[in-house]
């Protein structure tokens, strides 16, 4: 059973289509990245999964059920816009959210204590939120999302506004949740986090899905780039789309080579050997997710 499944979901606000025919599925134990620029429809999609918004068309399944608060016992959610009740203590805040998710008060309190200890806030359990630093408050917010040990953890731009220490803490929690069998869906437009964490990812632009798959599959959408060092131009070799001189001109010249789509670097190396095309360097350059994003989404965003 998928932890989260969207089938042909459409959401409109007046004349504006925020989410257009979106379908994807997330399996238990999977970390799923929901990538897109501002206004791509990420938050709207996640709000529909949480039943904060209702789709105009299509269907959504959350842990095998229709979206609704009956799922909240198995759901964790950290919104992009985060805040806490300022006059409540750290532990009371966690217990309140735990109880809203159907936990017994004692269980929520016990888990709240564990989380605060784990996040280094053991000494601030009874401190009112308005007396905590921003970083501490962010940890409390994270604790409210995971206090019920959710089977589906939805994080909307979770890294925005976090300091590097808390970013590391959040990454650890994401990995911990996934290892525990939970599906983690997080939206972001910071590719480094997605690169480190995602098993699969979905690229969204203007409400439409442009790509869904693993990171390797995403990278495969870009032409292969090679760095060669040769005495002659590799542009004449089969499968080379273009070759640009790089570095200082000399007997051995560096070349930046892009292969035409569908060509394998190994085939090119074999061709060089067979044809006696002398090489001192043959290096394949792995494209970053950022480049993949720009490649896939850039054009769509501009349209």
């Amino acid at each position: 059973m998928d932890a989260l499944r969207l089938d042909s979901v459409v959401k409109r606000f007046g004349d504006f289509t925020a989410v257009d025919n979106l379908s994807f599925a997330v399996a238990p134990g999977e970390v799923f990245g929901f990538l897109g620029g501002n206004g791509a429809g990420k938050t709207t999609s996640l709000r529909m999964a949480l039943d904060i918004l209702r789709p105009d068309a299509g269907s959504i399944s959350v842990l095998g059920s229709a979206p609704g608060r009956t799922n909240s016992a198995r759901l964790g959610f950290l919104p992009e816009e985060r805040g806490l009740y300022r006059s409540m203590t750290a532990i009371d805040t966690i217990v309140y959210f735990g109880r809203l998710k159907g936990m017994a008060a004692a269980a929520a309190r016990a888990e709240g204590h564990n989380l605060l200890e784990r996040f280094g806030l053991g000494g601030f359990i009874k401190t009112p939120v308005d007396k905590l630093s921003k970083g501490m408050a962010q940890k409390v917010q994270l604790a409210t999302a995971v206090v019920n040990q959710p089977r589906l953890l939805i994080l909307d731009e979770p890294f925005s506004g976090l300091d590097p220490v808390n970013q590391g803490l959040l990454e650890d929690e994401i990995v911990r949740a996934a290892k525990g069998g939970a599906a983690v869906v997080f939206s972001t437009h910071v590719m480094q986090h997605a690169e480190r964490l995602c098993d699969r990812l979905l690229l969204l632009a203007r409400g439409k899905k442009l790509f869904e798959g693993t990171q390797a599959e995403a990278r495969a959408t870009l032409p292969v780039q090679l760095l060669l060092s040769a005495k002659a131009s590799p542009a004449t070799l089969n499968g080379v789309a273009d070759a640009r001189q790089a570095g200082t001109p000399g007997e051995w010249q560096d070349w930046e080579v892009r292969l035409a789509p569908g060509n394998d670097p190994g085939d090119l190396l074999e061709q060089c050997t067979a044809q006696g095309f002398v090489l001192r360097r043959f290096e394949q350059r792995r494209p970053s997710l950022h480049e993949v994003f720009l490649h896939i989404v850039g054009g769509a965003e501009g349209r």
Binding site: L50, F77, E81, R82, G83, Y85, L100, Q141
Partner: peptide
Amino acid sequence: VEERSNKLLEAVLACVSPSE
């Protein structure tokens, strides 16, 4: 007003419906 200005409503609404 505090709930709105503190941006904590979305987290609450994930657990309780607006009517609740």
